[in-house]
């Protein structure tokens, strides 16, 4: 059981402060993850709050069948995709060029993207299809295992493996087109 899982167990046992630990643990990675979909930090933050609220209001849905991290990223993925579907119809989603990161988000981004190589990868991710992007984000930026990603995406481990492999191939092609040099 991870530290976050343990904290959630304590929260369910009545320790209300334990939820602060969970928020602190997942606040930045969630916003970073959601922002890769919605391209708006405020919206990403709002959806992240929705994810935590879901965890508080409907704790029985979690049931400790997977890790809390898998579960909360699963919620985040679904909410982000729902948001895009909903607002793309209304043409309200802001395109990438309109997005200006504030200082707080820059700090988050810096903590998530350690080097230039990772930044190039991150910037190229939105060009991939949804499943490849989600799998790569969770594996390479959140450090989740294939099994955890599979639980989060509600896919099999084999499918996740395929997504990662094909995602990397597609990413390689995109980066090559952009003139990125990488070591084999």
């Amino acid at each position: 059981m991870s530290f976050a899982d343990y904290a959630f167990r304590q929260y369910l046992d009545g320790d209300k402060n334990a939820f602060k630990i969970i928020i602190n643990e997942f606040h930045d990675p969630l916003i970073f993850f959601i922002n890769s979909y919605v391209k708006n930090v405020d919206t990403a933050e709002d959806i992240a709050a929705d994810c935590f609220a879901e965890l508080i209001a409907r704790p029985h849905k979690f049931g400790f069948k997977s890790s809390l991290k898998s579960y909360i990223f699963s919620i985040a993925h679904h909410m982000a995709v729902d948001h895009i579907r909903k607002y793309s119809r209304l043409s309200l989603i802001e395109n990438e060029s309109q997005f200006v990161a504030d200082d707080d988000y820059s700090t988050i981004e810096e903590s998530m993207i350690k080097d230039e190589r990772s930044r190039r990868l991150h910037d190229a991710l939105p060009k991939l299809n949804d499943n490849y992007r989600t799998a790569l984000m969770l594996v390479y930026f959140e450090g989740m295992s294939y099994a955890e990603v599979a639980q989060s995406m509600k896919k099999s481990v084999k499918q996740v493996d395929n997504y990662v492999t094909r995602g990397k191939t597609a990413l390689k092609k995109i980066l090559a087109e952009e003139g990125f040099q990488y070591d084999e």
Binding site: I23, N24, H27, I31, D42, E45, A49, D50, F52, I56
Partner: peptide, 15 residues
């Protein structure tokens, strides 16, 4: 972006 306390308040309000 909100500070941690405001974010926490928002979470509980949504919950």
């Amino acid at each position: 972006m909100m500070n941690n306390d405001d974010f926490e308040q928002l979470v509980y309000k949504k919950a």
